[in-house]
């Protein structure tokens, strides 16, 4: 069976003058429809580059990305990205930020009234309808990220790409938002590819965790399936043996076998 989203032998080499840096080497991964996959690795291993290739914002040097067996090589709303730094347009209100996406994607498919309803629906999904007339600078970091998620969901993407979406948030806000994402995933059954460097986050949210080796020439080191039933409850998982085992496996990969280059140097 072929996968819904397929990363097929992706290499990425940056060329600056005469210097060539091989960032990614031979990345092959299949993601099924409705699956939540996390990619974890130390910073600098090319996770974001890989996500950008899937999003179409960067081109692979070799290999490519197939979505529903069709090659993708340019950005598009079928692979909506939730950016690390939210990337809301500061001159638009929360509503208008989402509406811009809705108008663009559904301009011919839905009449004006439905587009409004769809915008509000997605804001309600992330519990941000109350702040629809605020500008991004008037809301907190967690709220901005919620709006970013609403904007991505509003495009009805085939694949939702999350680029360390909770990286810039404090621990409490992050936990809250993770719960929201889990609930949304449960409800809408989206296919999600998330970049993260947080082990707990990866185990809690994912069906599979893809562990990346260190760069240069980073590749997939190991793939771990997280066989925890959904819906998952953060508190119940604390002493769940499957959870503890998965967490241990990822930690072992990251800190025993593929230590961050900086940590290695320090020893």
């Amino acid at each position: 069976m072929t996968s819904y989203l397929k990363l097929d032998h992706i290499d990425k080499t940056f060329i600056r003058g005469s210097a060539e840096t091989e960032v990614l080497k031979d990345i092959t991964l299949g993601i099924d429809k409705g699956e939540f996959v996390s990619m974890i690795g130390h910073s600098g291993c090319g996770k974001t580059t890989l996500l950008n290739i899937v999003a179409g914002l960067a081109r692979a040097t070799n290999g490519g990305v197939l979505l529903e067996e069709r090659e993708v090589n340019e950005p598009g709303p079928d692979r909506a990205v939730v950016f690390q730094n939210h990337s809301l347009l500061p001159w638009l209100t929360v509503y208008d930020n989402v509406r811009l996406a809705v108008d663009k994607v559904f301009s011919r498919l839905k009449p004006r009234k439905e587009r409004h309803a769809w915008t509000m629906h997605n804001l309600e999904l992330v519990q941000m309808a109350h702040a629809k007339d605020k500008r991004p600078m008037e809301i907190s970091g967690g709220m901005k990220q919620r709006v970013g998620i609403a904007r991505a969901l509003a495009m009805e993407p085939k694949v939702l790409l999350l680029d360390e979406p909770f990286g810039a948030l404090d621990a409490l806000t992050r936990a809250h938002l993770q719960d929201s994402v889990m609930a949304i995933h449960q409800k809408l059954e989206n296919t999600v590819l998330m970049i993260t460097h947080d082990v707990d986050e990866a185990v809690l949210l994912s069906d599979r965790i893809v562990m990346m080796t260190n760069g240069p020439a980073a590749t997939i080191g190991e793939v771990l399936e997280v066989k925890l039933p959904r819906p998952r409850k953060r508190l119940e998982l604390v002493d769940n043996p499957t959870y503890i085992h998965a967490r241990g496996a990822v930690l072992e990969f990251l800190y025993a076998r593929h230590k961050a280059p900086a940590l290695q140097a320090a020893e």
């Binding site: 999003a55 914002l57 598009g76 692979r79 909506a80 990205v81 990337s87």
Partner: peptide, 10 residues
């Protein structure tokens, strides 16, 4: 960032 948003939205 804004250019990326524009590209994703086409």
């Amino acid at each position: 960032d804004y250019r990326n948003v524009a590209q994703v939205l086409r």
